[in-house]
């Protein structure tokens, strides 16, 4: 399965999406990311039982914080996939890239 997805996506590996904290997502935006997408296991299939469910709640909370700070909630998303869904991962990566490209660059990105 030689699938391709946009090269501008940087993958950060974590043992479980439950490891991803609110501050990690905010730091990505501070570091100049234009968008952040969490990809967790399918709901109900978490090896740690509730990691992906907790991540989803955090993503919802981060959306509020991003709205407050003027970055915009559309720049963060969460998807649930199994490791057998490479095809869907590539699709999501393309969709997310297109969506973020339409929104334009991160308004808090440092210039120069």
């Amino acid at each position: 399965m030689r699938l391709s997805y946009p090269t501008n996506i940087k993958i950060v590996k974590v043992p479980c999406t439950g490891r991803v904290d609110i501050i990690h997502i905010l730091k990505a935006f501070e570091g100049g990311a234009d968008g952040v997408c969490l990809v967790g296991c399918l709901e109900g299939d978490c090896h740690y039982l509730r990691g992906n469910l907790r991540a989803r709640k955090r993503v919802e909370h981060v959306k509020l914080l991003l709205e407050e700070s003027g970055i915009g909630k559309e720049r963060v998303a969460m998807h649930n996939l199994s490791s057998a869904q490479g095809q869907r991962f590539a699709e999501i990566a393309r969709e997310m890239t297109e969506k973020i490209r339409a929104l334009g660059p991160n308004p808090a990105r440092k210039t120069g």
């Binding site: 501070e30 700070s69 308004p107 808090a108 440092k110």
Partner: peptide, 21 residues
């Protein structure tokens, strides 16, 4: 400490966006 880091990040993002880092 956790909430401090989140608020600090939010303020920095907002002020950076406003051009007043």
């Amino acid at each position: 400490a956790k909430e401090v880091s989140v608020l600090a990040s939010e303020i920095r993002l907002f002020r950076q966006k406003e051009g007043q880092p």
